[in-house]
Computed example of a mutant assay.
Amino acid sequence: MKIIDRYILKRYLVTFATMLLLFIPIGITIDVAEKVNKMIENRVPFPAIAQYYVDFTIYFANLLFPIFLFLSIIWFTSKLANNTEVIAILSSGISFTRFLRPYLIGAAMVSVFALLMGFFLVPKASEGFKTFRFMYLIGNGQNEMRDNSDVYRQISDNEYIYVSSYNPDSKLGFNFSMERFKGDSLVYKITADRIKFNENDSTYSLFEYKKRKVGALNDVLEIGTRKDTILKFDVDELTPTVYVAETLNYFDLIKFIEKEKKRGSANMNTYLVVLYKKYSVPVSAFILTVIAVAVSSMKRRGGMGINLVIGIVIAFAFVFMDKVFGVLAEKSSAPPMLLVWLPNLIFGILALYLLRNAKR
């Protein structure tokens, strides 16, 4: 690696780290100012607050990672351009592509770090950050952490259950139904106005229940006010936390998605978006690096200010599109992978266009 490569790479990494160290305390200060009254009202213990802000730092840095990276490159490359260092480098016979190499090395280092963070560290921080918010800062605590309405699960290859609503505190569900199939034929169906999980013996109580067993010629109907029985599913699996996928490391997330696919989960798109973003965010480091260098390597009449304005507009446009397409991926019928990667595709084309013009 030549001196110029080490020089640019050092500036790349140092400026990025400085940007993080400058903005994270600002984010923490704003968050404290917004939430201090709520914390005092709820008498949140200090160790919980300290852990929350450790998790907040990791969560916040990961969330705004593209903006920090982009602005840091815009900043120090604009300084190089204003000092005519870029002109001197290119005039020495180094091509623009060769000039870009240390930036891409830096992007690779940041991407690997972001990938490992997203696989293992960010999920744990996300769990702590969001659990704290639901427990101490938002409404009903545990109840709002759960997806309690219209719960539908496939509990085996041929059995399905449904409850219209479920209360995890009382372990009580309403409008319960369970169906068992053999091939395409219904074997039996159980319905109940209420279902309650009994923690002392891990059984379920069905209230105002009906069990219809389908026969070859005649059906057998059983009706009762209460029936205690054992059912082959874990009651806690009915109500996973609404952000459960964000709290799992990469390997646990893969297993969780496979299990939810078999169950026919209605939240599959949400889980897949979390998985695909673990890959798309690190790739965005390369795309934003190329755009930032192409935009800021030219010396402009307005100086660094013009480059920073352009950089801020592009960075926030990227984050805005990433959020919009992320929501569409969760809610629409379009393939989640396509929508998650679409911002990278659009800005990748923009990066190639800007790079082509910069070479000229």
Results as ranks from 00 to 15, higher is better:
A329E: 04
L355P: 03
S333T: 08
R6H: 08
A88F: 06
G27D: 03
S205K: 13
N200A: 15
G224I: 09
F176M: 06
L338F: 15
M109Q: 01
L137N: 01
K171C: 10
F60N: 06
E85G: 02
S332V: 04
I291N: 01
D252E: 14
L13S: 05
E330D: 11
K213T: 08
M268N: 08
S332W: 08
K171E: 00
L288G: 02
Y188F: 15
M304G: 15
A108Q: 00
G326C: 12
L308T: 03
E179L: 14
D201G: 13
L328W: 14
T18S: 12
F120C: 00
G305E: 09
T57Q: 07
V327R: 13
F113W: 14
F16N: 00
I89C: 05
A81F: 09
T203M: 13
R212M: 10
S126H: 11
S333V: 11
Y276H: 08
G303T: 08
I3E: 09
V54A: 09
I195G: 01
R101I: 15
K255F: 12
D322L: 11
E260S: 10
K130F: 10
G311Q: 07
A107T: 04
L350R: 05
T18I: 14
T15G: 05
V214S: 11
K299R: 12
L339A: 09
A292S: 07
G183I: 10
K262D: 00
I312T: 01
V151L: 13
K130V: 14
L352T: 08
M117L: 14
P282T: 02
L217M: 12
N218C: 04
I58K: 04
E41G: 03
Y103M: 10
R360G: 08
Y243E: 04
D184K: 14
T289W: 11
E199C: 02
T239W: 13
F68W: 06
N218E: 15
G303N: 06
M1N: 07
M178G: 04
D252L: 13
Q51P: 00
I287C: 05
I230H: 06
F316N: 02
R43V: 06
D219V: 08
S156N: 05
V313E: 02
I74A: 02
I3T: 12
M321S: 13
G183P: 05
M178Q: 12
K232I: 00
I28P: 02
F120V: 09
A245H: 03
F119I: 01
I310P: 03
N175A: 09
V293Q: 01
L13R: 07
S78W: 12
L328P: 01
N200W: 13
P25M: 12
L115F: 14
R356Q: 11
A48K: 07
N307A: 07
I24C: 10
M1E: 06
Y52I: 08
P66S: 07
G128E: 03
Y12W: 06
G27E: 05
L253F: 11
A114V: 14
F99S: 00
L64H: 06
E34V: 12
F56H: 07
I49L: 03
I73Y: 10
I73F: 12
